[in-house]
Design a protein around this nucleic acid. Structure first.
Length: 649
RNA sequence: GCGGGCGUAGCUCAAUUGGAUAGAGCACCUGACUACGGAUCAGGAGGUUAGGGGUUCGACUCCCUUCGCCCGUACCA
């Protein structure tokens, strides 16, 4: 299966093996039908045996369950009218026993329009497939059976509050990691913390000053306090740089110069302080490292707690800050020079990446001798591929850094850093995401124009969920409500962030997201809760096998009769391909769309087909079994999206 | 200037990557045996897919072009 280019920039060695290849599976009708059509093409048109079978889920479900579009493409190659090609394929399929066990025989009317072949499954073929899915880890491979994949996510900075900008990296990154994990990959999460360099030295210097002056207590320092100190330090040094630049131009009046000099004198001290602290930091001087470590601890404790609130798995063991690469940078640059791929340009050391179609070179050492973020990113690629053995490295980072990653990926390629110990080449992908906008269509800010703190965003969401819960669920004990409100609000928040295409900007509307109607996270939870409710009732009435697995339904015989049952069954069977597609394209939105379809199919089934009060025992048992399979898949899908399920809400 | 992205119903988003009559949700209108949980379901209305040209059996999708908005464009991260 070819791996199509997506909107991500990526480097992939030709012929590199890939783990996301779909094998034909006995529970996936799409795979089986694809194989049967492939077989039919080979039989009818041997010279075009390799043609794409082009079987998809039917666009219009009134016409059939699946459709085959191969005849039109094939027609040209064999120079026959498309409908004749379709007729030949239908004849082969109608003689194929495997096909006929799964699908109804194709009548002449099955060929429609220019040559579409509409395929309808036999309802009696579905139970065996559903049972197979239920018995085989829902169609997904065993954990940790696949390749090693690194997911770069979260990306916080020391001494800074997490704001909306970190939401997407933390939520999408975590979900991509979960999706890849579900496809069997051995996932290594990497939180590339901005914990090094001049900006960090600035705030460290300021805190050391304040500490010495007795103005702060490092032990009781909060992230809020750090955030303020960071901004203040930034302002002081920024003023310095601009002031110095201005002062060197002697075109101003004497009064202006005098003012500037007074300001620049003060600022200049700060700036020099910061540079001195940076050198001490790089030398790991204990007096400076003590303060730095404190900054790191305060920041990371807070940020990891926020990630946990978002239900994202990012812990200290996933943190790999820029500081962890600091000692590797000088030798790395020496290595690059030795490789002969660098050159000096305008005083800086650069790697040309014109061969990748980029005219701006990758700067790996500034003219003042300092390294910069590109240098660190090169070191990170080397570690991730050559030390960790990752065959795929996924960067869940803002789309605005697109050029940077193109340059770094091309540079890493030239340096040979993408070469695995096995000799294979790793794939580097920028899973870029768009900006969160306010309802005015501008980047999401508070009324005063500041960035919105992530902790406030979450708290507001929780409060809204609590309001709804208080209004709509009086039967839930007040003591249970806060936990439920938390889960519901995070479901709303995550689903809103995940359900649109990654690359696009999206409008953040708390009101819409928290209305909990329609295509939202809470709708999915609600569907799940209704399933749980059925099983509570069934249990009370002794309708289940209390000792049996799968909520006491494992021994019940499926019987797919009603249209709503069939739609639901087909939705269940699509789960593995939905996860695999989502992993291949690095698009959580695909899995969201699938999950919404599953929940919708269940809601329709719920409305049309009584379960507990079904007419007879066989029907009731079959529907209980169908509910249980739906529940399992929905649970798995929600968990893969990082959405915690609830029994009640 | 150059490079990249985006433009689909009043609003927010889809369209299985070139397939049939472009689909959902919100909002609006009409219904659903007092409900296996109504945070639901069924139905209605709503479109020149920014404009124009091209490629072919077939285009929201690919190519060219115009317009609009956003982002990036060497020593910040």
């Amino acid at each position: 299966m070819a791996i199509e280019e997506t909107s991500t920039s990526s480097y992939r060695a030709p012929g590199a093996g890939h783990a996301l290849r779909l094998a034909p599976m006995s529970f996936d009708p799409l795979n089986i039908l694809t194989e049967r059509v492939r077989h039919a093409i080979a039989g009818a048109f041997p010279s075009n045996a390799g043609a794409d079978p082009m079987v998809t889920v039917s666009r219009n479900l009134k016409l059939g369950d699946f459709q085959c579009n191969a005849a039109m493409a094939l027609a040209k190659a064999v120079s026959l009218p498309p409908r004749e090609v379709a007729t030949a394929l239908v004849a082969k399929l109608n003689a194929d026993e495997t096909f006929l066990r799964l699908a109804s025989p194709l009548a002449p009317g099955a060929i429609a329009g220019p040559g579409f072949i509409n395929i309808t499954l036999r309802p009696d073929a579905l139970p065996a497939m559903l049972d197979a899915l239920g018995m085989s880890n829902l169609g997904m491979p065993a954990p940790a059976s696949g390749p090693i994949v690194v997911v770069d996510l979260c990306g916080v900075n020391l001494a800074k509050q997490m704001h909306v900008g970190h939401l997407r990296s933390t939520v999408i990154g975590d979900t991509l990691a979960r999706i890849l994990d579900r496809t069997g990959c051995r996932v290594i999460r990497q939180n590339h913390v901005g914990d090094w360099g001049l900006p960090i030295a600035m705030v460290t210097a300021r805190l050391m000053d304040m500490d010495a002056a007795g103005k702060i207590d490092l032990q009781t320092l909060t992230l809020d306090g750090l955030d303020k100190a960071y901004k203040a330090a930034q302002r002081e040094c920024d003023a310095d740089e601009k002031g110095l630049a201005a002062a060197t131009k002697w075109h101003m009046g004497p009064k202006v110069i005098a003012e500037l000099e007074a300001h620049v004198d003060g600022a200049s001290t700060k700036y020099e302080d910061a540079k001195r602290v940076l050198r001490q930091l790089q030398a790991r001087e204990p007096s400076v490292m003590r303060v730095w470590q404190r900054i790191s601890d305060v920041t990371m404790t807070q940020c990891l707690a926020i990630a946990a609130r978002l239900n994202s798995i990012v812990t200290s063991e996933h943190s790999a800050g820029e500081s962890s690469y600091a000692e590797e940078l000088a030798p790395l640059v020496d290595q690059l020079i030795a490789l002969g791929i660098t050159e000096v340009s305008e005083g800086a050391l650069v790697i040309r990446v014109d061969d990748a179609g980029i005219s701006e070179p990758l700067i790996i050492r500034k003219s003042d001798g300092a390294f910069l973020y590109a240098t660190t990113d090169m070191a990170a690629i080397r570690r991730r591929v050559q030390t960790f053995g990752a065959s795929r490295v996924v960067y869940c980072v803002d789309a605005r850094q697109g050029l940077h990653f193109k340059q770094v990926f091309a540079g890493a390629e030239r340096a040979g850093f993408t070469k695995l110990p096995t000799g294979e080449r790793a794939t580097l992908e920028h899973a870029a995401f768009g900006t969160i906008l306010g309802e005015d269509g501008r980047p999401f800010k508070t009324r005063t124009g500041e960035s919105v703190k992530l902790s406030d965003l979450i708290s507001n969401a929780e409060a809204s969920a609590m309001d709804v819960l208080n209004a709509e669920s009086p039967d839930i004990a007040p003591a249970d409500r806060p936990a439920i409100a938390r889960a519901v609000s995070i479901a709303a928040l995550r689903y809103a962030d995940l359900s649109t295409e990654r690359i696009k900007d999206y409008v953040f509307s708390a009101q819409r997201m928290m209305s909990f109607k329609g295509n939202t996270g809470p709708y999915l939870l609600y569907a799940y809760v209704r399933m749980c409710s059925i099983f509570r009732k069934a249990g009370e009435r002794n309708l289940l096998d209390p000792a049996g697995p799968q909520r006491g339904t494992a021994g019940f015989t499926l019987n797919i009769i009603e249209p709503a049952e069939k739609t639901l069954a087909l939705a269940i069977l699509r789960y593995p391909s939905a996860v695999n597609e989502s992993a291949r394209t690095l698009e959580p939105s695909r899995l969201c769309a699938y999950t919404y379809e599953l929940a919708t199919a269940f809601s329709q089934f719920f409305d049309a087909c009584p379960v507990i009060t079904a007419d007879d025992e066989a029907t009731r048992r079959s529907r209980l079994r169908l509910c249980e399979l739906t529940r399992q898949v929905l649970h798995d899908a929600l968990e893969t999206l990082g959405i915690q399920t609830l029994e009640r809400m």
